[in-house]
Structures are given as structure tokens and as C-alpha cells.
Amino acid sequence: MAIYGKGGIGKSTTVANIAAAYSRAGKKVMVIGCDPKADTTRTLCGRRISTIIDTLKDNKKPELGDLVYEGFNGIKCVESGGPEPGVGCAGRGVIVAMKRLEQLHAFDEQFDVILYDVLGDVVCGGFSVPLREDYADEVFIVSSGEYMSLYAANNITKGINKLKGNLGGIICNRRGTDNEIKIVESFAERIGTQVIGIIERSNLIQRSELDAKTVVEYASDSVEADAYYKLADDIFENENYSIPEPMDNDEFEDFFKSFLD
């Protein structure tokens, strides 16, 4: 499963928590962070792990154990990494990482779930690798009901459409704006998909991240953890996929303005 969305919208939080939920359900899970910030697996490992790109700088012939770390409840964790800001193509790190993982037979192990946390307002270059190279069978987009978040989601669907990807739905990560759920549900319907889950804004989720833990680990009996358990189940059992039909920019502007008038 590839999880896309605007930078800062909560992809890493979503990926880490549903990974933790899957592992608690007895599933064998791998998480691959494809963001140069390399923070996807921090709450699963309790710290930032070395990225594949950084490891390759010092070790030209790494073994699989040098690249894959074990996190919460046995989850296998990987960070692709990338160049420093302003130096080189960020997506290049994803390409290098995936090729090296293949060479070392990282995917020979029988995982129940492999999750890719993918940066990008537009699915292009290295960030399209999980789809273009058939590493991911399913795509989900994290978005709030805010203008820029949905604008990015619409752009992402353009890439998914071109790559004939299977979009499983929108994960609404709420920011508390007016008519938020209605806007996201209307957007999903407009592009030919569904809202697969809703995550409410919560200080407890932020508190758990400050302790470098998922809320599933930090407060396993909380309402917030339950929301991630439900989301994980709904994604795993989902059979409703589509090739999305994105709006052009003018259509999107009119769509969003209709909720403000």
C-alpha cells in the first residue's frame, strides 16, 4: 500500500499507526519511508534510523541487516533518505533504495502488509516508483478539508490516473475546518473514490509522537488508537478500487469555492 499526500498532512503518523495496528493484529509488516526527512519510522523505532542513502555513503556493500531495522512489535522499518535540501533530486533516493532492497532480496520475506510513506504533491520522478514499478498494489491519499491539502490530493490523482493505479480512497486527517468531512466526502465522490476513514485531530497523538511512539503503543486503549485500528481494518478489507478521474485546475477551484459561498 502506498500512502500519498501533501507534505505535513500526517502521512507518516497515519502509516506508523496503522502499521502498529496491523502488527498488534498479528500481521507481519514492513514500513518503507520514502521521504527525505526520514521520519516515518521514528515512532516505530523510538529514534531516527540510518537511511539507505546515508548507509551507502560509508558502506558500498551493505547487508540487508544494515538497511532494515526492527521496530515496534517486530515491524521491519526502512528509510530511503535523500540528499540535503537544495542538493540533487529528492526522489532519486527512493529509486536507489528500492533497487538496493531488491538486490538484497528484502521482499522475499512473506509480509502481510508493506506500507510506503510517499512524499509529494505530484506523483512524479522517484516518488512514482512504488506505483510505476509495481511495488504497491493499492494507493490511499491522506488529506484534510483544507484547500491546499485537497489541491495536492487532486494533483496526486492525476499521477495515479496516468499510471493506472488502484486508488482505494481518501483518509481524512481532520484539521477542524468548517464543513471538513462534507468537503472531503464530496471531493472523493467527485474523483470517483471513497473516504476510507476519518482521523480526528488530537493532542494525544501529538503527545505520543513527542515520546517517539505511535498512539497505538502509547495509549493502546484510547479512542485515538481505536480509530487507527478501525482504519487499518477498513483498508485491509477494502475491495473498492478505482482509477480516479481528477478535476482540472479550474474545476477544482469552482468545486472548492462552492463550499465557501
Rank of each mutant, 00 (worst) to 15 (best):
I198N: 11
P83A: 13
V31Y: 08
V142W: 03
D112T: 01
A21F: 02
R174T: 15
M1F: 13
K76C: 12
V94Q: 05
A2I: 08
A227C: 09
G71R: 04
I170V: 03
V129M: 13
P246M: 01
D221E: 15
T157F: 00
Y229R: 13
D233A: 13
G126N: 11
N249D: 15
F127R: 12
G33D: 09
G8V: 10
R207F: 13
V78E: 09
L260K: 13
A219T: 00
D134Y: 14
N17W: 05
Q103N: 10
L115D: 00
T177P: 06
E237Y: 09
K230N: 08
K27R: 11
M148A: 12
N155H: 11
Y135N: 02
V87N: 10
R174V: 15
R175S: 15
K57I: 13
Y241D: 08
A136F: 01
A225Q: 02
I9Y: 00
F259I: 09
E70D: 07
T177H: 13
G86N: 08
A212E: 11
Y135P: 03
P246Q: 08
I32T: 03
Q110K: 07
C172S: 10
K11E: 06
M30R: 01
S50K: 14
D211I: 03
S80A: 12
D66W: 09
N161V: 11
S258D: 12
I196F: 03
E70H: 06
K162L: 10
G197F: 05
N240G: 07
K60S: 15
P246S: 08
L119M: 09
F252L: 08
A25Q: 13
Q103A: 07
D254T: 14
K213L: 00
S186R: 01
I199W: 03
N161T: 10
T14N: 00
S128F: 00
I156G: 05
V68K: 01
K158Y: 04
A90F: 14
T13G: 07
A188E: 12
S12F: 04
G86S: 11
G125M: 03
G93T: 12
T43H: 10
K99T: 14
Y218F: 15
K6F: 01
F111P: 01
L104W: 04
G126W: 04
S208M: 07
G26S: 12
P83W: 10
E217K: 05
C34Y: 07
G120N: 11
D108F: 00
V142C: 02
N161A: 14
K213M: 10
V31K: 05
A106Q: 01
F252N: 10
